[in-house]
């Protein structure tokens, strides 16, 4: 910090705390983040080779490395991004309770009306 210089130990901890909060979210292409905070991986479908809302080379969904229906779970359970499915964390914890296997049972998943 430039305008506040930490003098005692508590001030140093406050400084570290603030610096850590800054390192939380930043643009990788701008070289952000302290070296201590690297390596830094984004979370979500793009890193775990889930198909995403994608198509295969033939324009369908049959040739994807995982069944396309799995995306329902990637978006519903693990993703922090507000996706096109109901959210598991707060409002619809039971949305997929009738769907034991996504590829077979996806028709059991109902619409929701927020």
């Amino acid at each position: 910090m430039k305008h506040l210089k930490a003098i005692n130990k508590k001030a140093q901890r406050i400084e570290q705390h603030i610096a850590a909060a800054h390192g939380d979210i930043y643009a990788l292409q701008q070289g952000g983040g302290s070296p201590a905070a690297r390596p830094h991986y984004p979370v979500g479908c793009s890193i775990v080779f889930s198909p995403g809302w994608e198509v295969d080379s033939a324009g369908g969904t049959a040739g994807l490395c995982q069944p396309a229906e799995r995306d329902l779970y990637d978006c519903y359970v693990t993703c922090y991004w507000p996706a096109q499915v109901p959210d598991h964390y707060n409002n619809y914890p039971d949305w997929t309770s009738k769907c034991a296997s996504a590829t077979k049972d996806w028709r059991n998943i109902d619409l929701v009306f927020p």
């Binding site: 305008h3 210089k5 930490a6 003098i7 005692n8 001030a11």
Partner: peptide, 18 residues
């Protein structure tokens, strides 16, 4: 100029702008 931050107990020197 120094600030003693009461809720935390931190002591900082503050710049003229601050």
């Amino acid at each position: 100029d120094f600030l003693y931050l009461v809720p935390s107990g931190g002591i900082f020197a503050v710049s003229p702008a601050g």
